[in-house]
């Protein structure tokens, strides 16, 4: 591809574009959530939708998550395809029943006669001192609970294709976008998240991880923001003569265990980077995927770069200590080598 026809979008714009395209072709698709109409979403991912589709299909809701997420389940079961937003993953506590007991289970409870084709989108992540109720990832919490797909794009190409796939999916999809990748100026933004994003609609298949950097000595598995940390760490390691492979999980449910296993079989070493809490989550699951399959491929004990099992602190110094970073990944390599 030549430079001139490259079409870089922010993740926010890629998400909005995918939703708009699906709304044009499927009258059952509608959007609801807090501040998603006139404001276009606090994180910009519904910008322009109100102007094109009007208030009937782009609905600002009251701050009543139990009702509108429960309502999305009902509308989805009745033939609509709601795309629902709740600003921060941290807020789901107030309405979790509608998510994990209804949205995620009604297909099963009905023996497959009820479908719940809805998308629940929410922001994740810290790094800008928003403290313990506005910075969590909670990837593991959602992925742990059966019956809902969970996707976590790390760049705008995937963001658009995964949104299109999520809307067309007949199962509920939790779409988790990381604030630091979103392209909102006020949050600062990871440049690597804005990549070429075709204008025409396309889908990114769920359950396919991607090797975003090839390497020989160590596999770094991550998702969302962690992928960018991993790529930076890999560039650092390369200066020291270490060849790191980086795997972007892209979706947690379904999880592409085969790609993880194949990469670790090649490198013999595994570092998992996950901004979510350390214990009982994605990082442990990735390691288990390898060791329960074939422990003999490992040349060293796997390492994890995660957030500690503690509430996310406000003060900048504390938060920097707390969150994963490229430097911590390089340190993890050091521990692995020393071991």
């Amino acid at each position: 591809m030549t430079q001139s026809n490259e079409r870089k979008l922010t993740i926010a714009r890629a998400m909005a574009e995918a939703i708009a395209q699906e709304m044009r072709t499927d009258p059952g698709v509608f959007v609801m959530g807090e501040d998603i109409a006139a404001l276009g979403g606090v994180f910009g991912n519904t910008r322009g939708l109100l102007d094109e589709f009007g208030h009937d299909r782009v609905r600002d809701t009251p701050i009543s998550e139990t009702s509108f997420i429960g309502a999305a389940v009902g509308a989805a079961q009745d033939g609509m395809r709601p795309v629902v937003e709740l600003m921060f993953a941290d807020f789901f506590g107030v309405c979790f029943d509608a998510i994990y007991n209804l949205m995620a289970k009604n297909t099963f409870f009905s023996g497959g006669t009820f479908k719940v084709p809805m998308v629940l989108m929410t922001s994740t992540g810290g790094g800008y001192s928003d403290a313990g109720q506005h910075s969590q990832c909670l990837y593991g919490t959602f992925a742990h609970l059966p019956g809902m797909k969970v996707v976590t794009p790390s760049n705008s190409y995937d963001a658009k294709g995964m949104m299109t796939a999520a809307i067309r999916d007949d199962s509920p999809v939790v779409y988790m976008f990381h604030k630091s990748l979103q392209g909102m100026g006020w949050l600062g933004t990871e440049q690597g998240a804005s990549v070429h994003t075709p204008e025409e609609d396309y889908t990114v298949e769920f359950g396919k991880a991607k090797v975003v950097r090839e390497g020989r000595d160590v596999t770094i598995v991550s998702l969302a923001m962690g992928v960018h940390h991993a790529l930076k760490a890999a560039a650092e390691l390369e200066k020291a003569g270490v060849s790191a492979e980086v795997v972007d999980l892209r979706t947690l449910v379904p999880l592409d265990r085969d790609t993880i296993r194949a990469s670790v079989a090649k490198t013999g070493r595994l570092i998992v980077v996950d901004e979510d809490y350390h214990s009982f989550g994605v990082s442990g699951e990735v390691i288990a995927s390898v060791v329960e399959h074939d422990i003999s491929v490992l040349k060293a004990a796997p390492q994890r770069v995660t957030s500690p099992d503690a509430p996310i602190p406000y003060a900048r110094e504390m938060e920097a200590f707390f969150l994963p970073s490229p430097a911590k990944i390089v340190e993890a390599w050091g521990r692995m080598k020393a071991a």
């Binding site: 506005h134 602190p313 504390m318």
Partner: peptide
Amino acid sequence: FGRATGLSGGRGGHMH
């Protein structure tokens, strides 16, 4: 300001 002398020593911030 997220300082050690804060009400919670900088753990909570303006909303906590």
